[in-house]
Each structure stands twice: as structure tokens, then as C-alpha cells.
Design a protein around this nucleic acid. Structure first.
Lengths: 153, 153
DNA sequence: GCAAATTCATTCGTATGCAAATGATATCAA
DNA sequence: TTGATATCATTTGCATACGAATGAATTTGC
């Protein structure tokens, strides 16, 4: 691979190196950027909660009290990650913890009244965030995208 | 009430029945899961490098020596993040740093011979990773998905 | 009924990822 | 020229994210 070849290709307007590896075309790299953009949009609408924290509250609102471990499974977080998220929500008074009466291994998590108020107030904003994230696509494209994305996830 | 119906309503901007908010239908949540899956696939093929580290090496291989800041822009990392990534690559002898002769603010980053050997050895694996990540989709679906994902990122 | 395997939670270590503040240098504009 | 701005890099603090190790409790298999 000589610089002379690259110069020639440049002058002739050809693609440099057909076998070249282009990071910006790789699904992983674009996926990472799309996720970054979504997180930024999320933060611009909901400043006092992160997406994982929101996910935990939303899921608790949906299903009610559950164990920390089960919650982690439902929101796709491993045990170490979910513990940190729940710890921070607990410190802010949005969730409360209790011990499972029968299975002493389990730590039950539930919304506090403040947590319930917060998530119900924020859900409309979450719909806005979804809309803004998908805004570069037409409605039809968005439907296609979500269908294919779900197949990948 | 199927998830598909909810997806359709979301895309069309209609309200789903009740106040039902389904986390698992939100683009941000699925995006996060798809990204997680990709990172896991990456790690199963390339154990000794993270995707951000790989991105830094691949971009340096593509464009040659550049400033730390410019590299960060090209691989979508802020200054604080790229510094950590480069520090770790430097500690492993895969990149080397030097000062810009004219602009004394800039820190130039370049591949070492070891870094070049590493990235050239790993690029074929990266193609495999991309294939495996997209495996749940047909070739046509994958092309559509990448086109729409790029519009979002 | 009991040993092995599994599950749940915690802790530690490492690695992104980003906001905000800081210092050094470079560029712009009056 | 110089004062205001902008850029580059670093540092600190906080929040995911996950592998690996550990301990406690439960379930399984025989």
C-alpha cells in the first residue's frame, strides 16, 4: 500500500482501497452513536433522572413490587448494575426496600408515593423523548426501524 | 392488545389504551439492549480490546497520526473519555504520543508498530462481529436497518 | 434427608461516558 | 497590540456496565 497509489486514487476520484475498513459504516459504531444521541435527548427533557433510573421506576410502576434481581432481568441490567441504580433511587426516596418474608435471599423493591408521583409525571415526557429520537425518520421508516431493531435486541 | 399494535400507535402518534407505558417498546430501551448485545458479541470475538479501544486504533490506522481531540471527534468520544482510552492503549504500547511542533496545545497520537499489527490482525474479526450482530436480519433487512440507523445517529 | 447445584445479593476492579471546572495556548477583533 | 474568545487537554465527580469472587439461602437430585 503506497502513498503514491492513494494519491492516484485521490486525483482520479476513486475510492481509496476497496478492502478498506470503514469504522463509520460498522453497525456497532453507529449503534453506539445512536444510543449516545438518544441519551442526550433524554437528558434534555428529563434532567434529574438517567435512562436506567427511569427504566427502573417505569417497570416498578408497571408491575409493582418485585425483587431487585427480577427487576434487573426485566430492565436488562446485571446484578451489580441494578444494585447501584436502586441504591441511588433509594437515597432519593423514590423506591423503598424490604425483605422477602419467605425467601430470605430476596430484596424487594417498590415505589414510594414520591416515586409513583415522579414516574407518572415523567411518562408523558418519555413519549416526547421517543418522538424526538425518531424524528429524523418518517412514520413508516420509524415503524420499520423499530421492528428491525427489536429483532436485533 | 399486542405489542405490535402498541408499536403502530406509537409510530402514528396515537395514545395507547389506558395510560399503559411499555418500556420494552420504547426506542431508547431497545437501542440500549441492541447495543449491549453487540458489545457482548464483540467481546466474544475480541477479548483483549474494548469497542472504543478498537475504534481508536481503527481510526488511527485509517487516517494516521492526529491530535487526541480530533481523534475523539472522529470516533464520537468527548475529551475526557478519549483521554482514558488513549492512556490505556499507550500503557499497552499500542499507541505513542508526541507534542505538536507548532500548536503546543495539541497532543499527537499515532499507532506503534505493535498497534498497527494488532489492528490489522483484528479487522477481519471485526467483520465477523458485524455479521454476527446483523445475523437476525436478512441481507435486505440489514441494509434497510443500517440506512435508518445512520439517519438516527 | 443431604450433598450438589442454583439463585440472590453484594463487593471489587476495570472501563466507558459526560458535565463542569481549570490551565495553557492560540486566534480573533477592535 | 491587546483584550476577549475559542480551542486543546486535563482533572474531578458521578453514573452506568460487566466479569469475577464471595457468602447466604434455596432448590434439586439421588
Amino acid at each position: 500500500m503506497s502513498g503514491e497509489d492513494n494519491l492516484l486514487r485521490l486525483v482520479e476520484g476513486e475510492e481509496p482501497d476497496e478492502n478498506g475498513y470503514h469504522l463509520q459504516d460498522q453497525v456497532g459504531f453507529i449503534l453506539r452513536k445512536a444510543h449516545q444521541r438518544h441519551v442526550a435527548i433524554f437528558a434534555s427533557h428529563i434532567a434529574d433522572l438517567t435512562p436506567p433510573q427511569f427504566a427502573a421506576l417505569a417497570k416498578l410502576h408497571d408491575i409493582g413490587e418485585t425483587s431487585q434481581n427480577q427487576l434487573g432481568t426485566l430492565i436488562a441490567m446485571d446484578a451489580a448494575t441494578v444494585k447501584g441504580v436502586i441504591d441511588r433511587l433509594k437515597a432519593r426516596g423514590l423506591v423503598e426496600l424490604s425483605k422477602h418474608e419467605v425467601d430470605k435471599r430476596r430484596l424487594l423493591v417498590n415505589l414510594t408515593p414520591e416515586g409513583r408521583e415522579a414516574i407518572e409525571r415523567l411518562i408523558p415526557l418519555a413519549r416526547t423523548i421517543t418522538e424526538e429520537t425518531l424524528a429524523p425518520l418518517t412514520a413508516k421508516e420509524a415503524a420499520t426501524f423499530l421492528r428491525l431493531l427489536a429483532k436485533l435486541a
